[in-house]
Structures are given as structure tokens and as C-alpha cells.
Amino acid sequence: MFEYGHMSTAAVLTPEPVIDEPAARSTQSVQQLQARIRSMQATKLDSRLIPTHPAIAGLLPGGGLKQGAVYSVERSAMLLMTLLAGPSAAGSWCAVVGVPEFGVEAAQRFGIDLERLVLVPHPGDDWLTVTAAVADVMGVVVTRPPKRATDSSIARLSARLRQRGATLLVLGSWPQSEAMLSLSQSQWHGIGEGHGHLAAREVTVTVTNRVTGRPRSARLWLPDADEQVRRSASASAGFSTMPREATG
């Protein structure tokens, strides 16, 4: 009790609260509490990352894809395949639900093992049930919601994913995603006006963290002329935490 009184006296005496307005102070404490809650919740999940492509891992919160988390990917099959390739090569089974136009051969070229890839192209209205059933047994599940799911069913699915340790990649938006990955400033190389062919693409990948709301982006070859995905050496489009790799 005394200590409490002492501390409160000290707090009053410090100059900062005098400068801060009460609203800002409450915001700060809310943020601190949220960070504390997050850190307590996240201790188990942060420790379990699934193999992620190094060019993208640095952009993701926590340094890679987490087990039991949901990520939303905006309309890019190649980015999706890059994310799937790591866990697939490490022996995970992958499932793609509700994406009938998933390019199988491109997936193989990106390094996804077709022996451990399962497609459910037309789940219909049962897409949420099917996704949950598949997530019970698969390491990574891709799904595309045909319509918005209810909050309660999303919460149920999230709990199931956490319990099973499966990672869900959603094509489109998802309310409780860990992060949102999107592409912009796509630039194709190797093709001219009536000559050449599509050979390589430079693109800016932006990862928006749900919690902090701060986007991180990097310029990537997706893919380069050798069908590899790597950081581009040209002018970066934004903040990057990873040291840039040398490019040829």
C-alpha cells in the first residue's frame, strides 16, 4: 500500500504526465496492456514457425508464417505458391479449397510437391466446414471464401486452427488475419511490343500487420528469369528489415 502511494507520488512528480493529455495517456496504457496480452497469448505460437521463403519471411510479423494463424493474400497465385512451397518441401500436406483455377503445373515449378497437394475445387456452400475438416489433417490450407462468414464461425475456425496447428491462407480479406499480403507495381520483363515472351517479373510485396497496422514492403523478383523468387536489387519501394541479397 505504501509502495503504491510512493509510486503514485513519484508518478505525479515526473514531468511527462504533465505534458501528456489524459486521453493520450489512456491510449498509451491500453496499448501497453494489449501488448502484454499479446505477448502472453503469443508465446506458444511465436515459437512455432513453419518454413517460409526467406524473401518473404522477413516481412512477416514474427519472421515467418506461424502455425495456427490466418494470413490473407490478395489476388496473386504466384505469391500464394511461394508461401506454400516452403512447408510443402518440408513435408507438410497442403490443401487448396475453393480455387478451381489453381495452376497445378506452376505450383510444381514453384516447388510444391504434388504428391502432398490436395484440391477441393468446388466446396459449394459447405466451404467453411470443408476448410475446417481439411485443416484438421493438413499443415497448410488455402481457401477462398465465396461470401463473408459470420464472426462466430470465424472464431470457431480460428480456435480449431490454433488447436491443430494448421496455417490458413485466405485469398481475399479475412477479419482476423495475422497479416495481409498484397502485390503492387508489377513490372514484367522479357516481353516487348510484339516480341519476346514473359520471362521475369519485379513486384512490390506489401505485408500489413493486423496489430500494428504498419505496412512493410520489399521489391521482389516473382519470379526471376531462373524461376526463383528473391529480393530485387533495384530501388526498394519501402521499408525493409532484411539485408538485401546480391542479385545478378
Binding site: L117, V118, P123, V134
Partner: peptide, 14 residues
Amino acid sequence: VQSMLGHGAVLMPS
């Protein structure tokens, strides 16, 4: 999933 959607709903690609 097959018993929910039918035999041809779950596909293995090659």
C-alpha cells in the same frame, strides 16, 4: 470431405 461432397470433389493433381 468426400462423403460430404461426393467422390470426385477431392482431387489429387499430377
